[in-house]
Amino acid sequence: MAILEVRNLSKNFGGLMANRDLDLDVEEAEIRGVIGPNGAGKTTFFNVISGVCKPSSGSIKFDGKDISSLSPDKIAELGVVRTFQRVALYPDFTVLENVNIGRHLHSRENLFSAVFGGTRKLEEKNLEKSKQIVDFLGMSAYQDEVASNLPYGLQRALNVAIALATEPRLLMLDEPVAGMNPTETQEMTRIIRLIRDEMGMTVMLVEHDMRTVMNLCDKITVIDFGEKLAEGLPHEIRENKDVIEAYLGAEEIVA
């Protein structure tokens, strides 16, 4: 059974149909790519699934539960966590503190235990786990560095680390390698693969970098003008006429 089932999903902003009747099934432990030309509605699609905006119509089921009317924090609690296209982190916190905030869902702290202790054991565990995640992303050397001092590539990696710290079942990455240099892109690709292979998470990503999408994703969904244009294995998408037409820079895909 698919872990994420999207049916007839539409989202309009006034007269603008950002998403129109989208259907999508993501299988457990799959890496799914969502691509499309600029303004095709990919980020809107992410926003709607993660609860940042409410869908105009249609249903979104995660693990059999309808999540289309839930708030982002409730959706995160169920195990769907997304990153942002922009650099989204806590600039004044250190790298480790940033990741540890991501452990929020695994904390049992309340006001009383905040003041008098009581959940300290669990918090130590959370900090330990945060360190592991920082380590996993190869950022141990920067653990105590303030996030705003990091170079761009590491800030993007930290975005992923914060999301990973929540231990989601479905991790949604919005352009994870945008603006990265080739070395950073390669490293991020490797990490995303590890997230699936070693942590067993399902990954869905929006990305413009075709090379990354083609060699990372198991299956690709193409969106154009808010509608699903094609769906299939990377080589099928690469040869799909509609897709090539939608992207005027066809050689980019063929490459």
Binding site: S50, V52, S71, P72, D73, A76, E77, V81, R82, F84, A88, L89, Y90, P91, D92, F93, I101, G102, H104, L105, I162, A163, A165, T166
Partner: peptide
Amino acid sequence: ADEDLSKCIGIN
């Protein structure tokens, strides 16, 4: 610091 990010990682 970042309300949207905080919501999306499960903070009410």
